[in-house]
Simulated assay, not measured.
Amino acid sequence: MHKVFISGSMGIKNLDQNVQNRINNIVESGYQVIVGDASGVDSSIQEYLISKNMKYVLVYCSGDSPRNNLGHWPVSKIETNAPSGTRAFFTAKDLKMAEDCDYGLMVWDTKSTGTLSNAIELLKRKKSALVYINKAKEFLKIKEVSDLEKLTSYMSSSALEKADKKLKIRDVIQSFKHQQNSLF
Rank of each mutant, 00 (worst) to 15 (best):
N68P: 03
S76F: 15
I34Y: 03
E99H: 14
K141A: 06
T113W: 09
G40Q: 06
D94N: 15
M155E: 04
G114Q: 06
T80D: 10
D100K: 08
Y154N: 01
G104R: 02
M54Q: 15
Y56E: 15
I142K: 06
I120P: 00
L123C: 07
L116G: 03
K52S: 05
L105R: 01
K137F: 01
M97S: 04
Q46F: 09
L123R: 04
Y132I: 05
K127S: 04
H72N: 15
V57M: 06
M54H: 13
S158H: 02
K77G: 07
F139D: 10
W108V: 10
P74N: 15
V35W: 07
Y103E: 12
S128R: 10
S51N: 13
D147G: 02
L70E: 07
F89S: 10
L151Y: 02
S158Y: 04
S84C: 11
P83E: 14
K126G: 00
I133N: 03
K55R: 13
L49N: 08
V33M: 08
G104V: 04
Y56G: 01
D102E: 13
A129E: 05
A92Q: 11
D94S: 14
D109Y: 07
L148W: 06
I142A: 05
D94E: 14
L130R: 01
V35D: 03
P74I: 05
I133P: 00
A119I: 06
K93E: 12
I34M: 05
N53Q: 14
T110A: 12
V33W: 00
K126L: 06
S29N: 15
L123H: 06
N134S: 07
A136K: 09
L105H: 01
T152C: 12
N68V: 11
R67H: 13
S158R: 04
T91Q: 15
